[in-house]
């Protein structure tokens, strides 16, 4: 169980680091454009990039918490 938990924690840490790097790079690249005030074709006209980024953070965190919970549940 300890080995499995260690591997899973390592995987989740990598996932969280990847999330942080992705967010940083997204903010860096999207600052090249200041066009978000009136996008003609914005997805469903309400969705903005920041909404997806919030969902991204929530899902990765939920995945990490859920995975650890799952390991403890199985053990």
């Amino acid at each position: 169980m300890n080995i499995v938990l260690a591997i899973v924690i390592f995987v989740l840490l990598v996932s969280l680091i990847f999330l942080a790097v992705n967010l940083t790079r997204t903010f860096s690249l999207s600052s090249d454009f200041r066009l978000t005030e009136s996008c003609y074709t914005m997805l469903f006209r309400v969705c903005r990039l920041r909404h997806f980024l919030v969902a991204y953070i929530l899902l990765v965190v939920a995945h990490a918490v859920g995975s650890i919970f799952f390991i403890f549940y199985l053990s």
Partner: peptide, 10 residues
């Protein structure tokens, strides 16, 4: 299988 499933979902 569990480890693979967690990696795959991530």
């Amino acid at each position: 299988l569990v480890v693979l499933a967690i990696i795959a979902t991530g």
